Simulated assay, not measured.
Amino acid sequence: SLDEYNNYLRTATTSGQWSNSFSDIYVLDNDLNIVGSVRDLGKTEKIYSVRFLQDNAYVVTFRKIDPFYVLDLSDPLNPELKGELKIPGYSSYLHPIEKNKILGIGKEDSKIKISLFDVSNPENPVEVDKYILNEYWSDILNTHHAFLLDKKHNIFFLPGRKGGYVFSYENDKLHLKKTISNISAKRAIYIDDCLYIIGTDKIIVLDENKWEKIQDFDF
């Protein structure tokens, strides 16, 4: 994972095989010299997801459990590991949804897991809620383009093999607001108060105020 912020390049890497793997965070200057680092995160594990967010970085490594790391990169010359949370499963995609709230999407016991992390105290990150979806795959595990966040309606969308799913995240609770079935959902977009679920052979349009289907279009 790579990120540029305030003329510094930040990168997260995993090296070695499972039995002796380790992960590092490096900060490089304009000449690509390493000026700061946090080393040896998640020994015998590998990085599954990273989110650089201004002065902070959030990293998930995994082998049997999911360490969720919070790093302070505000001083590029002296980056610090601030906090760590160990929970079952892992997150392969991280997305900020509110101030000090990070959404994680991954797996637990082979099913899709959605986690909501509170990082207001970097030294003590907390999983304030989680939801296990009865799905074994989502395109979000492969590409961030499959994820959609609509802050106006406080919802996010994720596709699955069985359909599409709309969740709310108000009051630190993950709530399944709408399941869209009979579609091989791949992506979604919103225009005004309408959510367009795009599948392999059709598009379904939902009213985001009533969460009712307005129309569908077959290809």
Rank of each mutant, 00 (worst) to 15 (best):
I114V: 15
D172F: 00
N142P: 00
R187D: 03
R161I: 03
I191V: 14
T200R: 07
S120I: 03
L206M: 13
N142G: 11
R187F: 15
K107G: 06
K113H: 06
T143E: 10
N134E: 14
R161W: 09
P122W: 00
T179H: 11
D139V: 02
Y136I: 15
Y196I: 01
I198Q: 03
F156D: 02
H153Q: 07
I140Y: 10
V128W: 14
I102D: 05
I198L: 10
N171M: 07
S115Q: 13
L158K: 09
G160I: 04
I198Y: 02
I155Q: 02
I203N: 06
K202D: 03
F117H: 06
I191W: 04
G163T: 02
R161P: 00
Y136G: 12
N100F: 11
Y131Q: 01
N121G: 00
I189L: 12
D192N: 14
C194Q: 11
D139T: 01
K162M: 09
I102E: 10
L148I: 00
K152G: 05
K111V: 13
C194G: 11
T200E: 15
T179I: 12
D118Q: 08
L141R: 10
K130W: 01
D192S: 14
L195K: 07
E123M: 10
I112Q: 05
W137M: 09
V119D: 04
E170Q: 14
L174T: 03
D139I: 05
R161L: 12
L206G: 02
D118T: 06
G160Y: 01
I140H: 12
L149Q: 13
Y190C: 09
G160P: 02
H175K: 15
K130M: 05
D109F: 07
I191S: 14
E135G: 05
H145N: 13
K113D: 11
I183S: 07
D193E: 14
S120F: 01
L195P: 02
A188L: 08
D150I: 00
S115A: 10
F157N: 05
I189Y: 11
